[in-house]
């Protein structure tokens, strides 16, 4: 549901990538700002923002409440149940997805914040890591696996981009991988296999 009629373009400089859609769909404006609310606003209208994201390569247009989490939106609105809910407070990493290639925990993200962005979940992460996790047995129950794999993909890009870690080793050593993957808990304790899978893929990338 979207009830706004104000024609102003909302994306300011530095904001999310602009993409074409009727500005009239985008909620009401007041004070020169976009207002989107699930409650009745001062202007007397109840409005919901329409959200456009590219998810696993396909454009999606969604009506969501401002307080809808990105994780719930992916799971319940788009049926992408790869990202998992393990703690809903950024403490386990099972909900990790990639936003424009950068790994985040989707449980602490409001969907509305990611308007215009490109989201990749494990379902869309066609990457050698998926096969490597199986071969190195970097999984047991599999529940943390989607988050582990998305996290590992993001981690390898971060490493390639020269992002440091607190280990500060020369090269992507085992300790570097461990530290850089410490945002993803695995209660089954498949950490050795996860490490081997990532090291294997990283070594192949390096060749």
């Amino acid at each position: 549901m979207s009830g706004g009629t104000d024609p102003q373009q909302a994306d300011g400089p530095g904001g999310p990538r602009d993409h074409a859609r009727p500005a009239a769909d985008r909620g009401s404006h007041r004070n020169g700002v976009l207002l989107a609310s699930g409650v009745t606003s001062n202007s007397g209208r109840t409005v919901l923002p329409e959200l456009r994201m590219k998810v696993n390569g396909s454009p999606e247009s969604l009506d969501v409440e401002p307080w809808a989490g990105l994780l719930d939106t992916l799971r319940d609105k788009l049926g992408l149940t790869g990202p998992k809910k393990g703690c809903e407070q950024g403490a386990c990493g099972a909900c990790t997805v990639l936003v424009d290639g950068v790994r985040i925990v989707s449980c602490l993200a409001l969907a509305v914040q990611y308007d215009g962005r490109e989201i990749t979940t494990v379902e869309g992460a066609d990457h050698p890591l998926r096969e490597a996790f199986v071969r190195h047995d970097g999984l047991q129950c599999g529940y943390c696996t989607p988050g582990q794999i998305c996290s590992a993909i993001g981690m390898l890009s971060e490493y390639a981009a020269g992002m440091p870690s607190s280990v500060a080793a020369e090269g992507l050593t085992d300790d570097e991988i461990r530290e850089r993957m410490s945002g993803n808990l695995c209660r089954c304790g498949a950490y050795n296999g996860i490490l081997d899978a990532i090291a294997d893929v990283a070594a192949r990338d390096a060749r």
Binding site: A10, L35, A36, L110
Partner: peptide, 29 residues
């Protein structure tokens, strides 16, 4: 539930917070 505001620039953000009692800025979340 809350009203969600995405200001276009800093001035708009400041005007919004000045006129919306109980408003909070949201960064990384």
């Amino acid at each position: 539930p809350f009203a969600y505001v995405k200001p276009a620039d800093v001035e708009a953000a400041l005007r919004a917070v000045a006129t919306e009692p109980g408003a909070k800025f949201l960064g990384g979340g």
